[in-house]
Structure formats: structure tokens, C-alpha cells
Design a protein around this nucleic acid. Structure first.
Lengths: 163, 163
DNA sequence: CTCAATGCAAAGTATTTGCACGCTC
DNA sequence: GAGCGTGCAAATACTTTGCATTGAG
């Protein structure tokens, strides 16, 4: 049994809840991924192992995992709640590529320290924070650059794109 | 006519759209507030000036204002989109008090610079970023402290609060 | 055997869209 | 007048809740 499964069991027992095959399957599936899954994503994966499982159970179990400290809710602003591994994972922030959707995790101790300093200045006690950087990742920039070169070769003028 | 109204008119005309009394009223109402209103909040305010106005128009006009650069969408993670003034407003970030809902705006050039540095390290082009710090504001901390003192005076032991 | 868990359907939110009529330009 | 804008209702998307049945302890 993995450490995470033990944490989950302990949490379940502490709250007087019950262990079920569905919860086990959802936890296992969640642990097997490394992406930032939405409830829907996880639901699809879990159904491969047990097609009779309901979307509701996945929603409810993700809440449980969050309570147990195994998952963390992340909102990227697309209207969907994503979940990432949280157990013994260091805090980190996200860069999100608006072209390909790729998510780059990063961490900067200086950034954290600066935030603490800003909070102290306002006598604000930080419980949680979220930094989200949206833009274009290296790969998509390279792709865009290549396209530009092709355009230049063809003498097709580039337009300033609206929006 | 204020600068903002001119910006709005120019945007409207550039897109071949039309000026209406509803749009004027919504813009005026928006400009008169300084909070981070949701569409629903603004709708309530606008209805005081014109009860016949529809929620849909408020949604649509807020999108327009955002396009025109007068408003900025901010998501605090409560599932609602909030809008703040954006015209000639310096970029800033938010601390949100989870007790009283107060929002503290702050800005740190060092923080911005560090983010740029992190992005450069990953060859990531920043288009937009959002920093949200959630915790307890100075006022609520003071209130909590006072409550603690009262407890201590009464010799009531404090429990570790669950959740 | 008791009470929690499950899956379905229905209800809730927040927001968007289709449409007939009305109002700018 | 042509076409955008409006308000309504319906649709959509995500998530939560009520409920009868199933299953863990």
C-alpha cells in the first residue's frame, strides 16, 4: 500500500466513512496521472476501469481527496476546477500556454519571499496563494516564428491580429 | 464627456456598433463604483436607474467594456467573474480576506520583475498574469485576537478548529 | 442491521444563445 | 430602411443535491 493510500484510509476512518471499491479506483487513477485533471477528465479515465461508476462519485471523491490533503483544487479560469497532486508536493505556480494548453510548473523562493513581504506590509496573514501566468510557451513561440519565416518568404504581409 | 466615455464611443464606432441608452447607463454605473463587481452586482445597481434593463445586456456590455480596455475580468475563484476598472489603471494584484471578503490591491515592481525572470527562464512569453493571495486581513486578525483575549480571561481553553 | 455510498435524475449557478421586436445611424 | 441592440426564454456548462437502492462495517 502506498503512503497516499494510507493517508486516505486514515482520513476516511477518522471521519467515520467507509472504504469502497469506487473510492479506491478513483484514488488509484488519480495517483497514476500527473496532469491537472478536471473532474470530467478523471471521470473518463476511471470509467475505463469501471464503466458503471457515476460522475457524481468522482466529484465527491475529489472533494474527499482534497480534504485528506492528497489533492489540491486549481482554477485556471476556464470555468473548470482542476485537481493536482498535493501530498508532499512542494508549493508551485503555473504558466499556462494559451495556444496549446500546456501547463508549466515553477517555483521561486524569491517570489514567495516577496509575497510574504507584501503581505506583512499590509498586516495580512497569507493562508493560500495562486500565481497564474498566461502566455505562449517556448514550443508554440518557435512554431509561430517558423510560420512567420514562411510568410516572409512568400511575401505575405502579416496583419495585426485583433483580440 | 469623460475620457472613458470617449474611449467607449470610439470602440463602439470602430466596430460598427451603436450607442444606446442602456450601454450609456451601464458604463456610467460601472464608472461610479470602485469595487470588484460581478455582472449580477452591476445588474442590481443598473436596475435602480432603469428597471426594464435585462441581465443579458449587462453581461454583453461588460464584455464590450473589457474589449474597449475600460474593464478587466478578474476571477477570484468563487465561480463568478468580477470586473474592475482597467482604463489607465496600473496593473496590480489582490489579497482577498476570507473572513470579510475585503479585497486589498497591491503592486510590487520586484514581483513583476521576478515573474518576468521566471518566464524568461522557460522561454515563456507572458501575456497576462494573475496573483491572488488569500488569507485574513489586518482588521479581521485584530478581531480574532481580541476574541482570544476574552477567551483567555475566561479561562476557556481554545480548541484546534477542524476545517 | 445500521448508516454511509452510489448512481440517477433533478435542481442549482453562472453565463451564453436564439429570436422577435424596437431603435440607432 | 438596414442592421444592430434589447429583453425574454431557452440552452449550455459545470457542479451539487434529493432519493431510493446497494453495500461496508
Amino acid at each position: 500500500m502506498t503512503e497516499e493510500q494510507e493517508v486516505f484510509l486514515k482520513h476516511i476512518q477518522k471521519k467515520g466513512l467507509k472504504r469502497t471499491s469506487q473510492r479506491d479506483l478513483i484514488l488509484d487513477t488519480f495517483l497514476r496521472t500527473e496532469a491537472h485533471l478536471s473532474s470530467e477528465d478523471l471521470y473518463r479515465l476511471v470509467k475505463q476501469g469501471d464503466p458503471s461508476i457515476g460522475q457524481t462519485t468522482v466529484y465527491r471523491t475529489l472533494k474527499l481527496l482534497t480534504e485528506a490533503g492528497l489533492a489540491r483544487e486549481v482554477r485556471f479560469g476556464d470555468g473548470v476546477t482542476h485537481y493536482e497532486h498535493h501530498y508532499k508536493h512542494q508549493h508551485h505556480d503555473h504558466m499556462i500556454c494559451s495556444e496549446c494548453g500546456r501547463i508549466i510548473e515553477f517555483y521561486s523562493a524569491e517570489l514567495e519571499a516577496l509575497q510574504d513581504a507584501m503581505a506583512a506590509k499590509h498586516r495580512f496573514q497569507i493562508n493560500e496563494h495562486l500565481l497564474r501566468i498566461i502566455g505562449i510557451c517556448a514550443e508554440c513561440r518557435r512554431a509561430a516564428k517558423d510560420a512567420e519565416k514562411v510568410d516572409a518568404a512568400r511575401r505575405i504581409p502579416r496583419r495585426a491580429t485583433a483580440r
